[in-house]
Nucleic acid binder design. Structure first.
Length: 185
DNA sequence: TTAACGTTTTCTTATATAGCCTGATACA
DNA sequence: TGTATCAGGCTATATAAGAAAACGTTAA
């Protein structure tokens, strides 16, 4: 895993979801696909992983599915294509299926590049927008009103941005935080 | 009081972050 | 036996999905 530079965010995980539009007998399907894993006693979704460390596809009986663990949009859509191709080969879905697939959540990491006093930062950012309870969790939770995402800030200056549906939102939110922290120094 | 129904919560997966706690192991 | 070190798990955050359990409410 590469280090996040001090002026940009690095994607570490993307969550996407879609719907096949047909009901799927996942118990039968799991028996026909070597890459599938299905244990209804543990969880009712069927897991599909094409190779080690590849993103994980979770397929439900309703035909809806989610993909987690991709570190780029390309990787996510590549996994979606691979999944649809497999299901088309098996006659589960049509070749031109419209699954309405979309990205739901970007998880990114970044680095401000210097240590941060989280107590002072929580006050500076506004206590109504932040949560900081070091006894419970060492990171400061910041919910910027301008951006639809949540930022975790740590004393080391490391940052996690999550909940963004677009990469630009995560990037802008990080820049916003960075300038706010700079003002407080 | 019990049954029936509706609503809410939990579970699972991925991922980074960092501090604390617990258990296991090694050594004096 | 006591101390030190290490690994692993938990804490929090977002998001999708749907089953199941745990609730709360209402009526008989």
């Amino acid at each position: 895993m590469s280090e996040a530079s001090s002026d940009r965010v690095e994607i570490v995980n993307i969550v996407g979801s879609g719907a096949l539009g047909v009901e799927v007998d996942i118990a039968a399907l799991a028996g026909d696909i070597p890459e599938a894993e299905y244990d209804p006693e543990n969880y009712h979704g069927m897991y599909l992983r094409f190779e080690e460390h590849a993103p994980l596809v979770t397929l439900y009986r309703s035909g809806k599915y989610i993909i987690t663990g991709a570190d780029s949009s390309d990787r996510l859509f590549e996994m979606r294509e691979q999944t649809l191709n497999l299901l088309q080969e098996m006659g589960i879905v049509a070749v031109d299926v419209d699954d309405g697939f979309s990205i739901q959540n970007f998880v990114c990491q970044a680095d401000i590049g210097q240590d941060v006093n989280l107590n002072a930062t929580a006050i500076g950012l506004g206590l109504e927008k932040t949560e900081y309870e070091p006894e419970q969790f060492p990171g400061l939770v910041y919910r910027p009103p301008e951006y639809d995402c949540v930022i975790l800030l740590f004393g080391s200056g490391k940052v996690i941005v999550t909940g963004a549906s677009e990469l630009e939102i995560a990037e802008h939110a990080f820049e916003h935080l960075k300038s706010k922290v700079a003002e407080l120094l």
